[in-house]
Design a protein around this nucleic acid. Structure first.
Lengths: 183, 183
DNA sequence: TTTAATCTGTTCATTAATAAACAAAAGTGG
DNA sequence: CCACTTTTGTTTATTAATGAACAGATTAAA
């Protein structure tokens, strides 16, 4: 992709996040985004329908980067302790952004999207695993992703009261106890 | 000026400074500058003749910003304790850049340029002042700027061993003793 | 309610940045 | 020394960003 597009989109999305640290999304204007991003207002409309589309693309990008950075390992088998640790390290490094996306009013989208991604991934994983004969997968797939997300959400919002290593260890134990990964 | 030009030139000059923190100027290539600045190589030639012209413009810009930021006060009367303090605060804030420009091999230009600027300013000041009847101004104008620059240079290179307030106080006393400012 | 100010979304001509290609110069290693 | 790679400086056509202007929608103040 053209360098200019990358730079403009990054500047615009960074400006949005930055403004969301100060105001609720609904109160943020395209004008203020353009000003903070130091781009012409028209440039924003070149890449986004409106500010809602901007938020949408921004969130989508954050989720994609999270997945691309945290999932790929060896290749294939998704959940491992080390990939979980990598994820928490990434979350910690970008906690400023994730904190905003999780707490800014009028943006319930973010949590939902992550939840959906996690549901899909966990479902796939459960079907691959031969285990859990005596557990209702239907229910487990409602239970586990939601619980996991909540742990992550709590950890971020509470400013990461445990180290990535510790939180990984704890969550891993929970996943084991719930037959998501083989003991 | 067009936003794009500002951004490109800033990125390019920041890249140069950044690379000069790692290598001698003579070893830095246009390619590496373009890469670090994240601009097309051709963009550099759009604004600079070659890397020497780039260094020239970069240095000139730093000096201009230093002057514009540090001199203007009230208006007119140049040297005052507060303007001196403001200058040292600015130097401290940008010590990373000034340290590089003062120490990187093959860039004696920077010190010389500042010296010339200071000579001109001090000369003007001396001629405005009615004092110093019994002091040879010709000699004083060789003596003072050079001495002042050396203090500044030492202060930056030694990683600012005194606070801006302290160094201002000390230098001010020296200037007083040398009849540059009225006691 | 009317006025004024701000924000939105779109259009347009102009300008800057881009990728790609090129020949020539300068280094590099065998 | 000669092949080989890198760097330089320049050129091209293409594309993105810019500033400016505009009408209509919102919002705030008088």
């Amino acid at each position: 992709m053209d360098k200019r597009i990358k730079k403009s989109k990054r500047a615009i999305e960074e400006a949005l996040i930055s403004l969301m640290a100060e105001n609720d999304f609904i109160d943020i204007t395209i004008n203020s985004i353009a000003e903070r991003a130091d781009v012409n207002r028209g440039t924003i409309y070149l890449h986004y329908e409106d500010k809602f589309d901007l938020l949408e693309q921004c969130i989508e990008g954050k989720i994609q980067k999270l997945l691309n950075f945290c999932l790929p390992e060896g290749s294939g088998s998704y959940p491992s302790k080390s990939s979980l640790l990598r994820t928490f390290n990434y979350l910690e490094e970008h906690s400023f952004t994730f904190h905003i996306l999780l707490t800014n009013k009028g943006v319930p989208t973010f949590r939902k999207k992550i939840l959906n991604v996690m549901k899909a991934g966990m479902k796939e994983q459960l079907e691959l695993n031969g285990i859990n004969q005596n557990i209702n997968k239907e229910i487990l797939i409602q239970f586990l992703p939601s619980a996991t997300i909540s742990v992550i959400e709590w950890w971020i919002i509470e400013s990461m009261p445990y180290s990535p290593e510790d939180i990984t260890e704890q969550l891993w134990i929970l996943l084991e106890q719930n037959h998501f990964v083989p003991k």
